[in-house]
């Protein structure tokens, strides 16, 4: 599938109808989502034929992109049942076969490294400090092959240090810097949208060291 085609399909997906501020519910736009998964597939072969988990899947944009690029199985995980409902409808519209689990990613109980690739656009931790690092820590235990994630560019050094030192990643690499339009969810924001710089990361976990979390 061509990048443009992927982007346009993702653009038709339904997004959060009543975003919950405390869960940092803002969608990954089709521009970023398509590039994220396209890179994962075409530069690293981390998508097609793989088992992919979408952490904090929300309305399911990233998981849908993985499915469109040929992932063998996709599992979307979110704490919010309303988002999962929208995600299921989106998958149905595109005739994609995706599994869902309602769970707080931080408390996920998981056996071994069955999942190949984790994709996520975690809460940036604007509401709950460190939320994105909690996601990353679990993702690096669940994935056997790679983790793709977005983090604020302003936290780049911190993310790198935590991944390599605390979460035992074997590599942590910024693939590109993107502009992210976070919609006005917060009352204290004056502008309608805030445009922030985010990094697209690829992390590689250490292999086969754990038998579960």
């Amino acid at each position: 599938m061509k990048l443009k085609q992927l982007e346009s399909l993702l653009g038709d997906l339904q997004q959060f109808s009543n975003p919950k501020v405390e869960l940092e519910q803002y969608p990954t736009g089709p521009h970023i989502a398509s590039r994220m998964l396209y890179t994962a597939e075409n530069s690293y072969e981390d998508v097609s034929g793989k088992i992919v988990a979408d952490f904090g899947c929300g309305c399911g944009t990233l998981g849908a992109a993985a499915a469109l690029l040929g992932a063998e199985r996709i599992i979307g995980i979110d704490v919010d049942p309303e988002s999962l409902e929208i995600a299921s409808l989106n998958a149905e519209d595109l005739e994609l076969d995706i599994d869902y689990i309602q769970c707080d990613v931080r408390n996920l109980g998981w056996r071994g490294q069955v999942v190949d690739t984790v994709i996520m656009n975690p809460p940036f931790g604007t509401r709950k400090k460190g939320a994105d690092m909690d996601f990353l820590s679990v993702a690096l235990k669940v994935a056997s092959q790679a983790v793709y994630s977005l983090h604020k560019t302003s936290t780049r050094e911190h993310v790198k240090r935590a991944a390599l030192r605390d979460f035992d990643a074997s590599s942590a690499e910024v693939l590109c810097e993107l502009r992210y339009d976070v919609p006005q969810l917060y009352k204290f924001h004056k502008k309608k949208e805030v445009d922030i710089a985010v990094d697209l990361w690829r992390f590689v976990p250490k292999r086969n060291q754990r038998m579960g979390i």
Binding site: R73, I75, I101, W110, R111, V114
Partner: peptide, 21 residues
């Protein structure tokens, strides 16, 4: 829920030492 999912999930409650299967 597929059995593939069941094969990965475990109970992660406080105090549980083996929540699988």
């Amino acid at each position: 829920m597929r059995l593939l999912t069941h094969n990965m999930l475990s109970s992660n409650m406080k105090g549980v030492s083996n929540g699988f299967p």
